[in-house]
Computed example of a mutant assay.
Amino acid sequence: MESGHQAIKAAAKLSTDALLQTTRKTYDWVVANVRDSGYLREERGALYALENQQGDCTESAYLFTALARANAIPARAVAGYVLENNGLLRAAEYHEWSEFYDDGTWRIADPQKRSYDQNYDHYVAMRLVDNRPDAVFKFARYRYSGNGLEVEME
């Protein structure tokens, strides 16, 4: 998520002495500066979101995560679903958001959906995002394998 890149480090100069103030300033900055481009098939990353000031939920989540990490705040990207009115999961509504660690709790920061440290009961996490090349758990929403048809959603 490029948290060590010089441009990310320069943009991360939002820190204060208080973790919650830093994460809130970071969240507000991403909300104000990253335009929702609509769904992008390929991940573009935090640096793309920073330089182009646009992206989908993935780029917004990655940018928040990278900026928080650049400020030495434990943060991660999470993928799953946000349910507001019912429990029906639709593949097209798959979503990514960020979480940061504060005082023994992972707190939500979702710049795209404008949700900071609230609505926890709406978020259904399906996986922690690990986009390192050597990651043990790779993820694809759908998988096909073998002769014939065997498709599963992970």
Rank of each mutant, 00 (worst) to 15 (best):
V78E: 02
S15K: 12
Q112K: 15
E154N: 11
A125H: 03
A79R: 08
R114Y: 07
Y101E: 12
D117R: 14
T26S: 08
G148N: 10
S115V: 11
L50S: 02
K13S: 10
Y81H: 15
F64C: 01
G87Q: 06
A140K: 12
N33Y: 04
D130A: 05
W97C: 08
D17R: 07
R35W: 03
T58P: 03
L19I: 13
R114V: 07
N131D: 15
A75N: 09
W106A: 09
Y81Q: 08
Y81A: 09
A18L: 11
V31M: 07
G146L: 09
R90L: 06
E59N: 11
L50D: 01
A46C: 05
A77S: 14
L83D: 01
E84R: 13
S145K: 05
E51Q: 14
Y81C: 03
A79Y: 00
E2T: 05
T65Q: 08
E43K: 05
Y94R: 10
L20H: 12
E93H: 11
G45V: 03
T58A: 12
D117L: 09
P74S: 14
R143G: 07
V136Y: 09
A11Q: 11
Y48H: 09
S98D: 04
P111G: 01
D28G: 06
T22W: 05
A91V: 12
L47M: 10
L83E: 03
R35H: 13
T16V: 09
A109N: 05
N147F: 06
V151G: 01
A140W: 03
N52Q: 15
T16W: 02
H95D: 04
W106S: 11
N52S: 10
A109P: 04
G104Q: 12
N119V: 00
A125K: 13
A92Y: 03
M1K: 05
L20S: 11
I8S: 06
A68K: 02
M126K: 10
S60L: 12
W29Q: 06
V78R: 03
E59A: 07
F137V: 10
R90S: 08
N52A: 10
A61E: 04
H95N: 02
Y94D: 08
M153R: 14
D134K: 09
A77D: 02
G104N: 12
Y101F: 15
R35T: 13
G148Y: 09
V124Y: 07
G45I: 00
N147T: 09
L88M: 11
G104L: 13
M1P: 15
G80R: 00
Y120I: 09
A135C: 13
G80S: 06
D110W: 03
R90H: 11
Q112G: 07
E93S: 13
I8Q: 01
I73W: 04
G80K: 00
Q54W: 00
Y144T: 07
E154H: 02
K13R: 10
G104Y: 11
K113E: 04
N131E: 12
V31F: 02
E51H: 04
V129G: 06
D134N: 14
S145R: 08
R44C: 06
V124R: 14
Y94E: 11
A79K: 04
E150V: 08
D134A: 13
H122A: 08
A66Y: 08
Q118F: 02
A49S: 04
A140R: 13
Q118H: 06
N119A: 13
G45Y: 00
G104D: 12
A18D: 14
R69L: 13
A12I: 00
V82T: 10
